[in-house]
């Protein structure tokens, strides 16, 4: 009898779901463009125009091109997790994909976990790519002793950013609004977080705000193990703590407010109308 059969084990299902999300990622050109290609071009432009300046931080001086390269590496990891999930999940909701999976025996945590796992993998790949560019073009050095701290930092922080992305996906009613909201959060935050423009003497209020938001601590935590003068070998626990708090808040918010079907009057109705007239 069918009743006697067991459900397939969760781990292979999780890996399959993550693989599915990775496949979707590489087949959505705009996602690849915004996550990797655009930050790469921005990096090339900034470093072509910023000369040989040195950036001074408490541990010493960075060549500006290495500093920016590492910061943008961190930024791509945020794009791959926070921005991508906040963009794509509402689109899939309007396509009915979320509701379709909700109709199957797939456990919810495996479905959501597949999205998060894929996002973290994309983030890690983006960081590796950007750092490889940095090593090749901008004199970034990645000491072996720094790698464990770097790996822990990227995995913990990107998981937290993924949770924040899910929270935005949960809170924003339509797909068209979601991409605007996600960018409206990320881009201003990037400007005060040393990503595109290193802040050398920011106003105190802005400095405090940047340190309470999750992006600046993440940039700091990625830069610390790659510092040209004094690379750290342990993760920046304080900075990671700030990010994890944001992640926990995002997770709680996503769990409480997540919606599986599109809001009435949103994209679904428009698409149905299009289908009926087509």
């Amino acid at each position: 009898m069918t009743e006697a059969r067991r459900f397939p084990p969760s781990l292979p299902l999780l890996i399959r779901q993550a693989g599915h999300q990775l496949r979707l990622f590489v087949r959505v050109p705009v996602a690849v463009l915004f996550t990797i290609a655009l930050p790469f071009v921005v990096l090339l432009i900034i470093n072509a125009t910023s000369g040989d300046r040195l950036i001074r931080d408490p541990d010493g001086e960075w060549p500006v091109d290495a500093f920016v390269c590492v910061a943008i590496a961190a930024f791509t990891a945020v794009s791959a997790t926070f921005t991508n999930l906040a963009n794509m999940v509402p689109i899939r909701r309007e396509e009915g994909v979320l509701q379709r999976w909700r109709s199957t025996p797939l456990p919810v945590w495996v479905f959501v976990g597949g999205h998060v796992l894929a996002a973290v993998v994309i983030a890690a790949a983006s960081v590796v790519f950007m750092l490889a560019v940095g090593v090749a073009l901008y004199g970034v050095s990645v000491p072996m002793s720094s790698i464990p701290a770097l790996v822990v930092t990227v995995l913990v922080a990107t998981t937290a950013f993924a949770a924040m992305g899910m929270a935005v996906a949960a809170l924003v009613p339509t797909a068209s609004a979601a991409s605007g909201v996600a960018n409206a959060i990320v881009l201003p935050m990037a400007l005060i977080s040393n990503v595109f423009i290193p802040m050398e003497s920011p106003p105190t209020a802005l400095d405090i705000a940047a340190n309470l938001l999750p992006l600046r601590p993440f940039v700091d935590a990625v830069q610390a193990p790659l510092h040209p003068v004094d690379p750290t070998t342990v993760p920046q626990w304080g900075a990671l703590g700030v990010i994890v708090l944001w992640g926990v808040a995002g997770f709680a918010c996503a769990v409480r407010t997540f919606r599986w079907n599109a809001a009435p009057g949103g994209g679904t109705r428009r698409r149905r109308a299009a289908r009926q007239s087509g």
């Binding site: 496949r23 087949r27 396509e95 994909v97 509701q99 109709s103 149905r272």
Partner: peptide, 19 residues
């Protein structure tokens, strides 16, 4: 258990266009 035993055709398709 229930989801394993039911099948649903929704009015909206719910399958990503990229696959």
């Amino acid at each position: 258990e229930l989801r394993d035993q039911i099948g649903i055709v929704l009015q909206t398709s719910g399958i990503e266009p990229e696959i």
